[in-house]
Amino acid sequence: MSIHIAGGPAADTVSTDEGRRRQAALAELLVDLQAHGLRVESPIEGRRGGAGPSDSGQLWVGGYSLTVPTDNATAADSPYALKAEDDGYGIYRDGERLADAHGQARPRFYDLQTADGIPYWQIGLLHLDSFASTVVQTCTYWGTADQCTFCGIELSLEAGRTIVKKTPEQLAEVALAAKNLDGAVDVTLTTGSSKAPDRGARYVARCGHAVKEATGLPVEVQFEPPRDLEVLDEVHDLGIDTLGIHVETFDPDVLARVAPGKAHTGIERYFETWERAVEIFGKGQVTTYVILGMGEDPDLTIRGCQRAIDIGVYPFVVPLRPVAGSLMADASPPDAAYTNRINRRVVSYMALRGMYSTVAKAGCARCQACSGMRALEPLAAQGAL
């Protein structure tokens, strides 16, 4: 597969047949890297464990942000290699250079600590250009029959890489340093689920409010559907810009198997919550993760994404990223062709509805590094998918 991609996604990327061919090849490469991982011959910044893009390196490939497995068995056997060059890196397969890549330097704020001695990196991390933190590193489902099998939220806590609960003041302090020292452009705050009726929404929103007051950056907070949907108004009143309310899969049988706690909530309750959230936060400012590769029915998945798009929700489609130590640690990522097929259907439908990643003010849909969707948007905008 010869691609030879250089530079970023310019406005005229797909203005010619050759441009469209190159863009399609780049989009396929990004998905293939997420499926097969990347053998890293020179160190790059990344992260292990936790609730985010685990066991992954963080890169810009052909101008697109990307998290790609670098620290697991999949990556060790990958046909792709990252090689250091005079100006950044190159992505190679079988000795052939396919694309430019640029890494993220170790964030400078990681070398700081709070007045009581907590390293800043235990409070929040930089995911390329986004500051992110799990504000409460425990979950009511963890260690029970309702535990999400793909999740590793408490693994980084057990390994001593974070603290159990971050305060609004700590997060504001560290996020400000991430902005000033390392150029963070937005903030994503998630949390383990709580037994409380608000499912932890109020606390993560308080944290988001403190961060926004200190930094002025747009903020996304993520939580499960609260029992009382008026909680969404409270979250909005705290100045939060976007919400992540993640159903994970639209296949009810798969949801019951991989996320029993969420299955108790029910997929229809997610739709009810999203509808109210879109009324408050606006179209494209509410997102849901949709994980591929867990045995889901692809037709159900596409229809669920289309229904979400129709009410203004951005379905963030990602391949399964098995987390070492999780209940799905031995699972395999989905085949790249399957992921690309779903991505094309979803991104095409989003383009018909005028929904693009550039609409999102903050969060996963803004960052896009864990998905291959953004590279398809220029093609979808021209009806070339």
Score class of each variant (00 low, 15 high):
43 P>K: 04
15 S>Q: 13
212 K>I: 09
195 K>T: 15
258 V>L: 10
300 L>F: 12
370 C>P: 08
187 V>K: 00
15 S>R: 13
10 A>I: 13
216 G>A: 09
315 P>G: 00
64 Y>Q: 09
300 L>D: 12
271 F>C: 08
107 P>Q: 09
122 Q>L: 13
35 A>Y: 15
92 Y>M: 14
42 S>M: 12
292 L>D: 08
223 F>I: 08
309 I>N: 01
250 F>L: 04
309 I>C: 02
288 T>E: 01
48 R>S: 10
331 A>K: 13
297 D>V: 04
154 E>M: 01
187 V>T: 02
287 T>H: 06
104 Q>L: 13
121 W>T: 13
175 A>H: 07
47 R>N: 15
311 I>N: 12
34 Q>M: 04
187 V>Y: 09
93 R>D: 07
134 T>I: 07
52 G>T: 15
223 F>V: 01
336 A>K: 05
372 G>K: 00
282 G>D: 00
312 G>E: 02
185 V>E: 13
178 A>P: 08
92 Y>I: 12
239 G>I: 01
322 P>A: 03
133 S>N: 14
373 M>G: 02
222 Q>I: 05
139 C>K: 03
332 S>F: 09
245 I>C: 12
87 D>Q: 14
66 L>K: 11
274 W>I: 08
6 A>I: 13
192 G>P: 01
327 L>M: 11
118 I>N: 06
68 V>D: 04
81 A>E: 11
313 V>F: 07
176 L>F: 08
277 A>D: 03
293 G>D: 05
142 W>H: 10
173 E>I: 08
119 P>Y: 03
160 G>K: 05
39 R>N: 10
298 P>F: 03
199 R>V: 10
362 A>Y: 09
62 G>A: 02
200 G>L: 00
322 P>D: 08
381 A>G: 03
51 A>Y: 12
353 R>T: 11
12 D>L: 10
30 L>Q: 03
138 T>S: 04
382 Q>D: 07
267 I>Q: 08
261 G>P: 05
2 S>E: 14
351 A>Y: 06
257 R>D: 15
316 F>D: 08
297 D>W: 02
75 A>W: 04
138 T>W: 04
4 H>Y: 14
265 T>Q: 06
108 R>K: 13
334 P>K: 06
374 R>L: 15
271 F>S: 09
363 G>M: 04
303 R>L: 14
78 S>A: 10
100 D>S: 06
7 G>R: 02
121 W>H: 13
355 M>W: 14
275 E>M: 09
260 P>T: 06
115 A>D: 15
314 Y>G: 05
275 E>Y: 07
246 H>A: 10
106 R>Q: 10
68 V>E: 01
310 D>H: 13
369 A>V: 06
266 G>Y: 05
291 I>S: 11
145 A>H: 08
254 V>D: 00
348 S>N: 11
263 A>G: 04
282 G>L: 01
190 T>S: 14
331 A>D: 12
375 A>I: 05
104 Q>F: 11
125 L>R: 04
36 H>N: 10
217 L>I: 00
286 V>N: 12
360 A>M: 10
112 L>T: 07
37 G>I: 02
166 K>H: 10
337 A>I: 09
360 A>R: 03
